[in-house]
Amino acid sequence: MRALARMMCAAVICGSLVCGALGAGVASAQPTAMGCTSGQLPNAAQILRCRGGVTIVAESGAIYTLQSRNRNGEVDAVDLKGKALLVDAPKHQGRNRFEVTTPQAIAAVRGTKWAVDAQDTRTSVLVLRGQVAVRRPAGNGQVVLGPGQGVDVDPGAGPLIVKRWPQPRVDALLARLGQ
């Protein structure tokens, strides 16, 4: 686990359960339509390998929808509503940032790897390597996180406060993703 913590990662923990779950098979045709192949990991997590080099590991039962904002059929965003995702989105010249959107936050990054976990009332983002910009959907208050920094985003309008995540919190999230 500590070896993975040295890789480019960010963890986003967010809230509200709304859309279909790829991990549960509700949106099982979506990966193929988005140019992805899917497989299963030993801990029941689903792994998607998509065109453009994007890899997404979804915790069993994760609730999310893949997006192609520029409508070219390549995944460039994920709308997450529940549980955890680990996203590896390589840097591409001239492309939009890869985004993970949750009810409380938008985490945008260009060429890094991060995890996203949906809870009932908050979104938390942790960067292990690289940088991730985090803001509320309304656009108020943005922070840019560096390695080891995290932020908890609740539905309120208070300031976003950057903190360091303790290693047990990082390890627990990554373990749920089979990492």
Rank of each mutant, 00 (worst) to 15 (best):
Asn43Gly: 10
Gly35Ala: 02
Ala27Trp: 06
Arg122Val: 13
Leu4Ile: 12
Lys91Cys: 09
Pro137Cys: 01
Arg97Cys: 14
Gly73Cys: 00
Arg169Val: 14
Val132Pro: 09
Asp154Gln: 08
Arg169His: 13
Gln30Val: 11
Arg6Leu: 13
Val54Lys: 09
Arg69Gly: 01
Ser60Ala: 14
His92Trp: 06
Cys9His: 11
Cys9Thr: 15
Arg69Ala: 02
Arg136Tyr: 07
Arg136Phe: 11
Val78Thr: 04
Gly146Thr: 11
Ser38Asn: 11
Lys163Ser: 11
Val109Leu: 14
Pro90Val: 12
Val87Gln: 07
Gln142Trp: 03
Tyr64Gln: 13
Asp117Val: 06
Ala27Thr: 10
Asp76Phe: 05
Arg122Phe: 15
Thr32Tyr: 06
Arg2Asn: 10
Ile47Trp: 04
Asn43Met: 00
Asp120Val: 15
Arg51Asp: 03
Ala115Ser: 07
Val109Gln: 09
Ala157Trp: 03
Gly178Cys: 02
Asn72Ala: 02
Ala5Ser: 09
Ala84Asp: 03
Leu41Lys: 08
Asp76Trp: 07
Cys19His: 12
Ala24Ser: 15
Gly15Met: 03
Ala172Phe: 01
Ala105Thr: 01
Val54Leu: 12
Gly23Met: 09
Gly15Tyr: 04
Gln131Ala: 14
Thr121Tyr: 06
Cys36Phe: 08
Gly178Lys: 01
Leu48His: 10
Ala10Ser: 08
Arg49Thr: 15
Val144Met: 01
Gln67Lys: 04
Ala44Lys: 07
Leu177Thr: 00
Val26Lys: 10
Phe98Pro: 15
Met8Ala: 13
Lys83His: 14
Ser38Leu: 12
Gly150Ala: 12
Leu48Val: 13
Ala172Lys: 00
Val125Tyr: 01
Ile161Phe: 11
Asp88Asn: 13
Val109Trp: 08
Ile161Gln: 15
Ala105Trp: 05
Thr65Gln: 11
Gly141Ile: 00
Gln167Arg: 05
Lys81Trp: 08
Leu4Ala: 14
Ala29Tyr: 09
Gln142Met: 03
Pro147Val: 04
Leu17Phe: 06
Leu160Asp: 00
Gln119Met: 11
Arg2Trp: 02
Glu59Gln: 15
Gly15Ile: 02
Ile56Pro: 12
Ala62Phe: 15
Gly73Trp: 00
Gly139Val: 00
